[in-house]
């Protein structure tokens, strides 16, 4: 239990190599975008962090369902861990997007659908932490977090749709639709390679960090058990 699983060390190594490769691709392989220049490179990791955020929130809703069905503590641990990681990554996505927006849109923040949705999502999961904090009984905590994670995740698409119906200026990079605001561009081959490689790298990073975070959760519950034994 206390020893680090060997496969986890292996995954750490793989993640490190992938991350390094992604950084190299971003800075040295991906070409400079014509009109935006170097700031555009923020895009690769910006989208990747946002992706990890959504992935983690999805995982937490899934784990919420699993917990409710099976009542195994592990699902709650995974759900909580992934929310914590996603919260951090989503925050990074918001801040890095903001830095990108400053030179491109000439403002740190606009009330555009994606930005607003992102802010709302952060608030939802901020509330998730407050909910967990306010409950002492572990099983009740797990049940309530599961329910709230399901609700939270399901409200995200509706939030997005309803805000989207107000006009958008966030560039649509993937899929159809011509960008209505500034800062849209079409990706050339090397850009696409860099982009999808970053997405892949961050997915692996998410799994790796999640594993560590779950380990911490398990170790903590073990510690609490020992402490209880000591005091009794």
């Amino acid at each position: 239990m206390e020893e680090k699983p060997r496969f986890l060390s292996l995954l750490d190594g793989i993640t490190g190599i992938l991350f390094l490769a992604a950084v190299l691709l971003v800075f040295f392989y991906a070409p400079l975008e014509r009109s935006m220049g170097a700031v555009q490179k923020v895009f690769y990791f910006h989208v990747s962090t946002a992706w990890v955020g959504m992935l983690g929130f999805f995982v937490s809703a899934l784990m919420g369902g699993m917990y409710i069905l099976s009542r195994k503590k592990i699902w709650d641990m995974i759900g909580f861990s992934s929310v914590e990681i996603s919260f951090i990554f989503f925050f990074i996505a918001i801040v890095s997007g903001s830095i990108w927006a400053r030179p491109i849109w000439n403002t740190w923040w606009t009330w555009d659908p994606r930005l607003t949705t992102a802010a709302v999502v952060e608030l939802i999961y901020g509330a998730y932490f407050l909910l967990r904090q306010a409950i002492d009984e572990p099983q009740q905590k797990a049940r309530f977090s599961a329910v709230y994670a399901i609700f939270g995740f399901l409200s995200v698409p509706l939030t997005f749709v309803s805000i989207r119906m107000l006009r958008t200026i966030h560039p649509v990079v993937i899929g159809a639709g011509d960008p209505t605001g500034g800062g849209g561009f079409s990706m050339t081959g090397p850009m696409q390679v860099t982009f999808f490689f970053s997405l892949f790298t961050f997915s692996v990073l998410f799994v790796d960090v999640l594993w560590h975070r779950i380990r911490l959760e398990k170790l903590e519950s073990m510690m609490n058990k020992l402490r209880l034994e000591l005091t009794s």
């Binding site: 935006m36 220049g37 170097a38 700031v39 490179k41 923020v42 910006h46 990074i92 830095i99 990108w100």
Partner: peptide, 14 residues
Amino acid sequence: MDTYRYMIAGYGVI
């Protein structure tokens, strides 16, 4: 220069 400054700031944060 500006675009590089913002790029560095962005990746610095990340």
